[in-house]
């Protein structure tokens, strides 16, 4: 579904990604694992078209989207859940949900969203940023589901959340996957990652160093944790 070839990204003089090639199969949940500063967020920003100084090609369903602007990529089916959750303070909860266009046939209706996330229904008229961190995360994921995006790019949705909320996010991601949506997920929590994902890509210093399946992750969990410095 997603094919990335030879992606190199720079910030001024510094190279943050170096020759990254990566495939995500349709219907899979794939994680990007790596230390802070390894280049994971930049990789998602490149895919979304938000980081412009890059080389390489990005294909979505055999269509080259490398030259498309972010809003065109969104309409092509990419759903972005940014690391800061990207909730608008000047929009209420419902406006945050309905701001983006629907881009796919499987777009959730508002009713479906509210049924799955009752807390958002209760707070639909409140400013988006009045929600708690966990609720904002729900809102951010609910937003891309309502769009009907086919490939979600989630930048560490569990960061800073309590174990209970992490579990909830896990349920949501498994539910999303069951609906046939593909997910590319940044995740530091290796254990959590192995409970939701099919494949894992290890990123270090801007390079993709290893690709592992769940069995390998479980086997090498301690080594990976040490490696991540957690």
């Amino acid at each position: 579904m997603l094919r990335v070839r030879g992606l190199t990204a720079t910030y001024g003089e510094a190279r943050v990604l170096q020759d990254v090639s990566l495939d995500v199969e349709s219907g899979q949940v794939v994680t990007l694992v790596g230390r802070n500063g390894a280049g994971k967020t930049t990789l998602l920003r490149c895919l979304m078209g938000l980081h412009r100084s890059m080389e390489g090609t990005i294909e979505l369903d055999d269509r080259d989207i490398t030259r498309l602007s972010p809003h065109q990529r969104c309409r092509a089916g990419l759903g972005y859940v940014p690391d800061d959750r990207g909730i608008y303070a000047s929009l209420n909860v419902e406006e945050n949900l309905t701001l983006p266009p629907t881009v796919g046939p499987d777009a959730w209706s508002l009713e479906q969203v509210y049924e799955a996330f009752p807390v958002l229904a209760d707070r639909r008229r409140q400013a988006g940023t009045h929600l708690s961190g966990g609720e904002q995360q729900m809102l951010s994921i609910a937003r891309v589901l309502r769009m009907g995006s086919r490939l979600l790019l989630c930048d560490e949705p569990t960061e800073g959340l309590s174990p209970l909320l992490v579990q909830q996010i896990g349920d949501i991601l498994r539910n999303v996957k069951a609906h046939g949506v593909t997910v590319l997920l940044i995740e530091q929590n290796v254990h959590f990652a192995s409970t939701v994902a099919d494949r894992h890509h290890l990123i270090a210093q801007g390079r993709l160093v290893e690709s592992l399946d769940n069995a390998e992750v479980k086997e090498r969990e301690h080594e990976l944790l040490e490696y991540l410095g957690i």
Binding site: P70, H71, R73, P82, Y88, A89, L91, L99, P100
Partner: peptide, 22 residues
């Protein structure tokens, strides 16, 4: 108005959410 508010608050993010801010 909603689009303008969103784009005023965060133009980049609004692009990524399918709004043709330009």
């Amino acid at each position: 108005g909603m689009v303008v508010r969103a784009a005023t608050e965060r133009a980049d993010l609004s692009q990524a959410l399918g709004i043709n801010v330009g």
